[in-house]
């Protein structure tokens, strides 16, 4: 059996994708661990893999007038060093794993893994990122929260590849990112929290709040955010318990080997409260 294909270009990759059932393999930092068996043996996968990490078409960052297009196979290090990368993304990337992992791990891989603890996801949700999926017939653009369906589940079809990520350009005055990890570096997230806000004339013009690792997918609520927009600090202070309670129904953490549901829930709400009371105004 063929264990891996290495296409020359995106076109060939999409053809392979159409012809065979294959596992797209970008940086491989997660797949190589998932498939591992014993030192000295190649990892095992149920299907052949399709190497795409080397494809030039998937490795560009392009700044357009209203948005930034990030190729799915850009490594996390490359993005960290890219001058056009929004600050909020850089902050998340800076806390991502270790230099050696960031050097081969890709943003597309982190998205398609759809891990609840995926460290690029809270910021991508918060900045209204969408993903461009391509097959041999064409492309479709899907907002990230519709792309990720659950733990390890996405709407990526068997014949598609994640081509790029589109990030609308928008500046924020406040970025409050907290990765509560198992340790201070090279850690997996127990909780991650991102709050973004833009203030104008004492009123909240825009606000984005997302939580990672506390539910099957990133928690973000446009409905709650809308309630906060156009409001003053005083008003927000008054409704904090209500806001916390609303998020509380969305935050559905679990007990696992890294933390427990109780901690995840309480601390998520504490981070939220800290952001709303201390950080934004």
């Amino acid at each position: 059996m063929v264990s891996a294909y290495r296409p020359e270009n995106l076109k060939e990759a999409l053809l392979r994708r159409k012809e065979f059932r294959v596992i797209p393999f970008a940086g491989g930092t997660d797949l190589m661990v998932k498939g591992r068996r014993w030192s000295g043996l190649a990892p095992h996968f149920e299907l052949p893999v399709l190497f795409i990490g080397h494809l030039g078409e998937l490795k560009n960052v392009e700044l357009e007038q209203n948005c930034l297009r990030i190729g799915s196979c850009c490594t996390l290090s490359y993005l960290l060093e890219n001058e056009n990368m929004p600050q909020a993304i850089k902050i998340a990337l800076w806390m991502f794993a270790s230099p050696a992992i960031r050097n081969i791990g890709t943003i597309g891989g982190n998205i398609c893994n759809a891990s609840p603890a995926g460290d690029t996801l809270p910021v991508l949700y918060a900045v209204n990122a969408s993903v461009v999926l391509k097959n041999t017939n064409g492309i479709r653009e899907v907002p990230i929260e519709q792309f990720i369906k659950g733990v390890g589940k996405t709407v990526l079809q068997d014949d598609e590849l994640l081509k790029e990520i589109i990030i609308p350009i928008k500046s924020f005055d406040t970025i409050y990112y907290r990765k509560v990890g198992t340790r201070k570096a090279n850690a997996l997230s127990k909780i991650s929290f991102l709050g973004l806000a833009k203030i104008k004339n004492g009123l909240i013009e825009d606000i984005r709040i997302s939580f990672g690792a506390v539910a099957p997918t990133v928690v973000r609520s446009m409905e709650i955010e809308d309630r906060l927009k156009g409001k003053t600090k005083k008003y927000i202070k008054q409704i904090i318990p209500e806001i916390c309670s609303q998020y509380s129904t969305l935050i559905k953490p679990i007990d696992d080997q890294r933390s427990n549901a109780y901690y995840r829930k309480i601390v998520s709400l504490r981070l939220l409260k800290h952001f709303l009371t201390k950080d934004i105004l």
Partner: peptide, 12 residues
């Protein structure tokens, strides 16, 4: 760049 060779598939 520094890379951990245990999670690199040689085909890449």
């Amino acid at each position: 760049r520094i890379v951990n060779s245990c999670i690199v598939a040689v085909g890449t």
